[in-house]
Amino acid sequence: MSLPEIPVAAPPRVADRIAGAPDGAVAVLHACAGMVHLELPGVGPGRVVGVGSAAAAGLPHALRTTLESLPLGRQDPPHNLPTRPGEMSSQALPTAYVESGILYLGGRALVARRLVGVRAPRLDAVRIPKASPVAAMGTPRPRGAGLVAGPDCVDAGRVVDLVGRGEGLTPWGDDVLCGWLVARRAAGVPTPEVDAAVRQALPRTTALSATLLECAMAGEAADLVLAYLIALGAEPGTGSRPVIAAGSALRALGHSSGAGLAHGVDLALGRPAGRTAA
């Protein structure tokens, strides 16, 4: 008897990416009870898809479920699925695969029942100063991030010093860049030189982080980043309670990712630097 489907909410580009993916085994990059990161077949950025539990943070590359925990058990995929050399054996089968445009995890089909918006809200570009007062304060450095000194602003020449710099699935420098890029999109400020430099540097970082940078260049961000931008758009004053609450919630995301994202937003919008990581 087949297992029941898992209804999911999907960002539009993620739904299209899965629908267009070739049939076959999907690599599992990282898995825990609350979030799984999967690498679809293919080349180039944007090929990593997340699957989150009900309690997981909403990410721009991730499907959202209402499950308390995700099905991570190994299940046999259909026998007619193509495989890459050395990828599968009868002893070691993938936990995830794509068949006919549907992603399966733990043998259960993840079926998109609705789309969820992940694009940044448009902010009033008039509020964005040409010179950022945060520049003099520098980029906060998280513990163990591996950055000797963060740049005091973002431009095409500094991208190489940020992409892939730091530890973890999403290095600190990439988090700062993601926040900066999506905030500039929200403000309607074009960044062609930075975009080109980021695309050229993507091979320097992790597949997951490259996907999130690609999302940021498309104006897409985590729910907590969107909430922070919405608060800033409604309450541009730095001391308003909604801005403080949204900023604090964002900075609490992950080990240092939220702090990097928040700093990137603040840097892009010319706000005073937020709380630095310990």
Results as ranks from 00 to 15, higher is better:
residue 104 Y to C: 06
residue 55 A to I: 05
residue 82 P to R: 10
residue 110 L to K: 00
residue 148 V to L: 15
residue 115 L to S: 13
residue 116 V to T: 13
residue 65 T to N: 00
residue 79 H to L: 13
residue 111 V to P: 03
residue 74 R to W: 07
residue 95 T to C: 12
residue 130 K to C: 14
residue 135 A to N: 12
residue 79 H to V: 11
residue 53 S to A: 13
residue 152 D to Q: 12
residue 123 L to F: 08
residue 157 G to K: 07
residue 94 P to S: 09
residue 127 R to S: 14
residue 69 S to V: 09
residue 96 A to L: 08
residue 66 T to H: 08
residue 58 G to A: 06
residue 80 N to I: 04
residue 52 G to H: 01
residue 56 A to M: 02
residue 45 P to Y: 01
residue 115 L to F: 10
residue 132 S to E: 09
residue 46 G to A: 02
residue 132 S to D: 07
residue 88 M to E: 14
residue 71 P to N: 05
residue 62 A to D: 01
residue 155 D to C: 12
residue 64 R to C: 01
residue 133 P to S: 11
residue 145 A to Y: 08
residue 117 G to C: 08
residue 131 A to E: 15
residue 85 P to K: 05
residue 93 L to H: 09
residue 116 V to I: 13
residue 68 E to N: 08
residue 32 C to A: 14
residue 149 A to S: 14
residue 92 A to I: 10
residue 154 V to H: 02
residue 74 R to G: 07
residue 68 E to K: 12
residue 147 L to S: 11
residue 70 L to K: 04
residue 80 N to V: 07
residue 94 P to M: 05
residue 33 A to P: 09
residue 72 L to M: 03
residue 100 S to I: 02
residue 131 A to W: 12
residue 120 A to S: 10
residue 93 L to N: 11
residue 130 K to T: 15
residue 45 P to A: 03
residue 127 R to W: 13
residue 46 G to M: 03
residue 99 E to L: 12
residue 150 G to A: 12
residue 150 G to C: 09
residue 144 G to A: 10
residue 37 H to C: 09
residue 112 A to S: 13
residue 87 E to T: 10
residue 65 T to E: 05
residue 48 V to R: 00
residue 143 R to M: 15
residue 112 A to T: 14
residue 54 A to Y: 01
residue 98 V to Y: 03
residue 125 A to I: 11
residue 137 M to D: 15
residue 45 P to T: 01
residue 138 G to F: 04
residue 109 A to L: 05
residue 82 P to E: 07
residue 64 R to W: 00
residue 89 S to Q: 04
residue 102 I to N: 09
residue 110 L to C: 04
residue 101 G to D: 06
residue 103 L to E: 04
residue 32 C to P: 01
residue 60 P to N: 03
residue 96 A to Q: 09
residue 38 L to K: 05
residue 110 L to P: 01
residue 93 L to S: 08
residue 157 G to W: 00
residue 115 L to V: 11
residue 47 R to Q: 14
residue 126 V to P: 04
residue 129 P to D: 06
residue 98 V to R: 04
residue 98 V to E: 04
residue 97 Y to D: 08
residue 102 I to T: 15
residue 127 R to G: 14
residue 139 T to C: 14
residue 32 C to K: 09
residue 130 K to E: 15
residue 78 P to W: 00
residue 65 T to P: 00
residue 41 P to G: 13
residue 93 L to F: 09
residue 43 V to W: 07
residue 50 G to V: 11
residue 98 V to L: 02
residue 113 R to K: 13
residue 138 G to R: 05
residue 40 L to M: 08
residue 139 T to P: 14
residue 115 L to M: 14
residue 50 G to D: 11
residue 99 E to T: 09
residue 69 S to N: 01
residue 36 V to Y: 01
residue 120 A to Q: 00
residue 91 Q to W: 11
residue 96 A to P: 13
residue 107 G to M: 01
residue 70 L to E: 02
residue 107 G to L: 07
residue 106 G to T: 02
residue 111 V to Q: 00
residue 71 P to R: 00
residue 39 E to V: 08
residue 70 L to Y: 02
residue 98 V to S: 05
residue 110 L to S: 02
residue 86 G to D: 06
residue 43 V to K: 09
residue 118 V to R: 15
residue 115 L to R: 13
residue 125 A to V: 15
residue 30 H to T: 12
residue 117 G to V: 08
residue 125 A to G: 15
residue 142 P to V: 09
residue 40 L to N: 02
residue 130 K to N: 10
residue 53 S to L: 06
residue 102 I to G: 01
residue 141 R to T: 14
